[in-house]
Design a protein around this nucleic acid. Sequence first.
DNA 1: CCCTGATTCGC
DNA 2: GCGAATCAGG
Length: 198
Amino acid sequence: MSWTDERVELLKKMWTEGQSASQIAKELGGVTRNAVIGKVHRLGLSNRAGGAAEPAKPEPKAKPEKVEAKAEKPAVQPAAEAPEPKPAAKPAAPVQAAAPVTTPARKAIIPAGQPLPPQPSANEIDPAALAKVGEIEKHSKKLSLMELTERTCKWPIGDPATEDFWFCGLPSQAGKPYCEAHVGVAFQPMSARRDRRR
DNA sequence: CCCTGATTCGC
DNA sequence: GCGAATCAGG
C-alpha cells in the first residue's frame, strides 16, 4: 500500500481526532502502526495538543553502539508558546459505545421517579452468571474511560454520577466489548422471551 | 502483558 | 519517502 492522497487525508483526520496510531493503521489497512507513526512524523504533525509543548528530551543515552556522527538539528519547532485561552481541545471520547447495555433486561419497571437504572438489575439473568459478575467485579481493574481499549471489558460499574464509577477493565475476548463474565449477563440468549412472532 | 508514541536507519 | 526494529514509557 502506498500513501495516496486519500489515505493521507484519512490519516490526518484520524490523527487530529486523537485516534491512536494503531487504530489508524487498522482503519487504513495494509500498514502497521509504525508506518502510520512514521508518516505522521514525516508530515510534521507529530503532536496534536496545543499546549503540551514537550520542551526537550535530553536523554543522553550512552549506547555502546558504533560511533554515530549525528548532526542534531536545532529545535525544529519554533516553540509555539500558544497561550491559547481555549482549554486544550480534548480528544472526544475515542472509545465508541461507552453506553453499554446497563440494563440487559428491563422488563420490570423501576418503581417511580427513581432515576437509578445503572446497576445491571438482576431480572431473569442466570444466577450463576450474576454471581460470577459479582465475583469478578471485586477484582476489576477499575479503569477510567481513557484507559479502555478494544481488549478491555467496558462494563460500567458504580454510579456514573459519583466518584464510585469505573470500568471493569478485565481482558475482554476477541471482538466482545466485555470480559467473559460480563458478556454472560450482557448478551442473554433469548430465554424467557419465548414467543414473539418477531 | 497490554498498550502508547518516538526515533533510528537500511532500504 | 518508507517502515521495521527498537526505544521509552503508561
